[in-house]
Computed example of a mutant assay.
Amino acid sequence: MTPKLVADIEPPYYTAVFTSVRTETPEGYAETGVRMREIVGGIPGFLGYESARTPGGIAISIAYFRDLESLDAWRLDSEHQAAKARGREHWYDSYSVHIGKVERSYSFERE
């Protein structure tokens, strides 16, 4: 089965690009990830997400939001803030966050 990409979103919209390198301490990481997907999925204006991990250990997650208000609702969510603090304490050696406004977008899918 081919993974499904987030596509066909009418611009403008916003992205939150999270790149990270994890530690060797995964306790609670997977469960927290499931919970974060539940929370962000309930935010009005959340459009979807994609993620990937390189063999070398760099992870990239991109979340798509209709507007800055919905992105801020995610950023300010108390459970998300607690997960970010736990990530800094236990799960990440480093990470970067990049916020962008998408003004043009297109996609291709083989039939």
Rank of each mutant, 00 (worst) to 15 (best):
F46R: 01
A59L: 10
H98F: 15
F46Y: 09
D93P: 15
S96Q: 14
K4T: 14
E31Y: 06
S20F: 08
L47Y: 07
A73L: 06
Y49H: 13
M1T: 13
A59N: 12
G41I: 03
D77A: 03
T25I: 09
G33Q: 10
E50F: 03
F65P: 00
S96P: 07
G56A: 15
S96L: 15
I39C: 02
Y106M: 14
V97E: 03
I99T: 13
P12D: 04
I9R: 00
T54D: 05
Y95C: 07
R35P: 02
H80W: 07
E24I: 07
E50V: 05
I60T: 13
I99D: 11
W74P: 04
R88T: 04
G41W: 01
A85S: 12
W74T: 03
D8T: 02
G100K: 06
R22H: 07
T2S: 12
M36F: 07
V102G: 04
A16R: 01
R86T: 14
D72R: 15
T32P: 02
A16W: 00
I58D: 13
T32W: 01
Q81G: 03
Y92E: 02
T54Y: 08
Y49Q: 15
Y29V: 04
H80R: 09
G41A: 06
F108D: 07
G28H: 04
P55H: 10
P3S: 09
G33H: 07
R53I: 12
T15V: 11
V34G: 03
A85D: 14
P11W: 05
D67G: 01
I43T: 00
A16H: 01
D72S: 15
E89F: 04
I60Q: 15
S20A: 13
V6K: 00
V102N: 05
T32A: 07
F18V: 03
S107L: 05
A83I: 01
E109K: 09
L47M: 12
R66F: 03
S61F: 00
Y92R: 06
Y49L: 15
F108R: 08
H98D: 13
V97N: 06
F65I: 00
A83V: 01
P3W: 05
P55M: 12
P55Q: 10
S51Y: 04
Y14T: 06
S51H: 09
G100Q: 07
A7K: 11
A82F: 00
K84C: 10
F46S: 04
Y13C: 07
R110A: 15
Y13S: 03
T2K: 12
R66C: 06
W91K: 11
G100H: 06
F46E: 01
A7W: 02
T2V: 13
T15I: 12
V102F: 02
E103H: 13
V102R: 03
V17F: 07
A30S: 09
R88Q: 09
V102E: 04
M36H: 06
P55E: 15
S20G: 13
T19S: 15
R22I: 04
